[in-house]
């Protein structure tokens, strides 16, 4: 473990900027959002999570896969993004979100576009000393302090950051700017432990994950799906802000004799998601809502060795204009 004084954070990140593209949480008006490092806007003491996860950097909302010419010739050009990138300030919920996406896109069939971005990206986490109203990572077990999926992990100890090393790549970043860091003492580590316990007491949203897991298979005909789905205004916001939602559409966009094959995020809450030429296999909103919850809490764990497709970040609760609340739904499922 290392110590980095807060006044050395910007020099450290700017130092990384010589070799990497550096992204970090920035104050943007009322919001905190990830962006390109700008030390005048850098958010280090924000509570809870940035409005959006850093998913965009490894799985962009819209991505050009390859371009081909339509003149019958075999001219296909693939577009792999191999930008060397460091992301600082990733909350534990979002670290888990990236770990989850890794599992989906880097297992079985390895997605070359995702792999190109991800294998060139270093993740620097930032533990949460306080939860927001909608946060429920402590119920899922992904936070408020991270245990895995980071290259370096920062904990705010007041005047300094405690820095835990999670990988060789992370260790190398420290070694390159070793003069900025000092060694941590057992007292620092103890203080982090106290902060974690304090942080856990700030949560206001809870679910009983064990009960959800035990009961969800039997809840498919629960009235909760139709009741909650009736409120939905079909904006898809819950999917767009979700750090683990990985579904996408593929489209060919043609201009002149060139076509770009692009993929972009899709939303299982919209009817078009399952629309085929002759029929729609998920015709009601209740079925679509159930699919979103089941995919995260039943189907994904079944397919990916128990890993849940929810980070507990609560962004879908914050974003929903109709007040559909995943924690409320899960509490209904559990009972």
């Amino acid at each position: 473990m290392k110590i980095l004084s807060k006044s050395n954070l910007v020099p450290f990140l700017e130092g990384l900027g010589l070799e990497f593209k550096v992204n970090a949480p920035l104050y943007e008006g009322q919001d905190v959002l990830f962006g390109d490092l700008d030390s005048s806007k850098l958010a280090t003491d924000f509570i809870g999570k940035p409005r959006l996860s850093p998913k965009e950097y490894s799985f962009p909302q819209r991505e050009r896969l390859f371009t081909f010419k339509n003149n019958g010739g075999v001219e296909i050009e693939a577009h792999l993004n191999e930008t060397k990138r460091v992301i600082w300030g990733i909350r534990p919920c979002d670290l888990y979100g990236l770990k989850f996406l890794d599992m989906v896109y880097l297992s079985d069939y390895v997605d070359p576009y995702y792999q190109a971005r991800r294998s060139n990206t270093i993740l620097l986490g930032l533990n949460c000393n306080k939860a927001e109203e909608s946060c429920f990572c402590s119920s899922i077990g992904t936070g408020p302090f991270a245990r895995e999926a980071f290259d370096l992990l920062f904990t705010d100890l007041g005047d300094v950051f405690l820095v835990e090393i999670g990988s060789k790549a992370g260790k190398k970043l420290i070694e390159k700017q070793a003069n900025l860091f000092t060694n941590a003492t057992s007292k620092d580590e103890k203080q982090a432990g106290i902060l974690e316990e304090k942080s856990k007491k700030t949560f206001k949203t809870y679910i009983d994950l064990g009960k959800v897991e035990a009961k969800i298979a039997g809840a498919s005909s629960s009235p909760v799906w139709a009741e909650e789905a009736a409120k939905c205004i079909l904006c898809g916001g819950c999917n767009w802000v979700c750090p683990t939602c990985y579904c996408f559409n593929i489209e060919d966009v043609t201009s002149g004799d060139k076509t770009q094959r692009v993929r972009y995020w899709d939303s299982c809450q919209l009817g078009g998601f399952t629309q085929m030429a002759a029929m729609n296999s998920r015709a009601t909103q209740a079925e679509r809502l159930r699919q979103r919850i089941y995919h995260k809490f039943s189907y994904n764990p079944d397919k990916y060795g128990g890993e849940i497709g929810c980070t507990g970040c609560g962004r879908c609760i914050d974003v929903c204009p109709a007040g559909i609340n995943i924690a409320y739904i899960l509490r209904r499922v559990a009972n």
Binding site: V104, Y109, Y246, F248, I250, Q275, Q291, Y299
Partner: peptide
């Protein structure tokens, strides 16, 4: 089974039924 499909390799999510 006929389902909407995009990728064909179990990633895009459209043809998901259960696990």
């Amino acid at each position: 089974m006929e389902r909407r499909m995009e990728c064909g390799v179990g990633k895009c999510g459209h043809c998901n039924i259960g696990k």
